[in-house]
Amino acid sequence: TTYKLILNGKTLKGETTTEAVDAETAERVFKEYAKKNGVDGEWTYDDATKTFTVTE
């Protein structure tokens, strides 16, 4: 399944996708990605669109 991440950081904005077996796995991948890019904020997930959003 393809999951999407929307980054709404103070200095970094953008989108990325990952293939994962479930939302929990995708969330771990995306949180590591955000951490590596210095983005830390509020996380939300929309199951209907398989989209995570992190907003600083």
Rank of each mutant, 00 (worst) to 15 (best):
F52Q: 00
K13G: 06
T44K: 07
E42A: 12
E27W: 14
N8K: 12
L7S: 03
K10Q: 15
A48L: 14
G41T: 02
E19G: 05
T11A: 14
A48I: 10
G14Q: 13
T53G: 03
A20E: 05
K35W: 15
V21H: 12
E24W: 08
K4T: 13
G14V: 15
K35Y: 12
A20K: 03
T11P: 03
T25H: 15
Y3H: 03
A48F: 11
G38K: 07
E27R: 12
K35C: 07
E56T: 08
V21G: 10
T2K: 11
K13P: 05
N37P: 01
V29R: 10
G38I: 04
L7A: 04
T53W: 09
T11C: 11
A23I: 12
T25F: 08
G9L: 14
Y3F: 11
V39P: 02
R28N: 07
A34R: 01
G14S: 15
N37H: 15
V54S: 02
E24H: 11
T11K: 06
L12Q: 12
T16W: 15
D47R: 05
T17P: 02
E32W: 06
T55W: 15
E27D: 05
Y45I: 01
E19N: 14
K35R: 13
V54F: 05
E32Y: 06
K35P: 01
T17D: 05
E24G: 10
K10I: 13
E42F: 12
K13H: 12
E27N: 06
N37C: 07
T44A: 11
K50S: 05
T25Q: 14
K36G: 07
E32A: 12
A48E: 13
T11W: 13
T25R: 06
T11I: 10
G14M: 14
I6F: 07
T51A: 04
E42P: 05
G41H: 02
E42R: 11
D40N: 10
E32P: 02
K4C: 06
T25W: 08
L5D: 00
T1K: 07
G41L: 02
E24R: 10
T44W: 11
F30Y: 01
A34C: 07
N37G: 05
G14N: 07
K31D: 03
N8M: 13
K36W: 08
A26W: 00
E19L: 09
D40S: 13
D47Q: 11
T55E: 07
T53D: 03
Y33Q: 03
I6D: 03
A23G: 05
G38H: 10
K35E: 10
D47L: 08
T55C: 06
A23F: 14
K35S: 11
Y3Q: 01
A26G: 02
E27I: 08
K31F: 06
D40T: 12
V21I: 12
V54P: 01
T16G: 04
E56S: 08
E24Y: 13
F52R: 00
T55G: 04
T18N: 04
T2S: 09
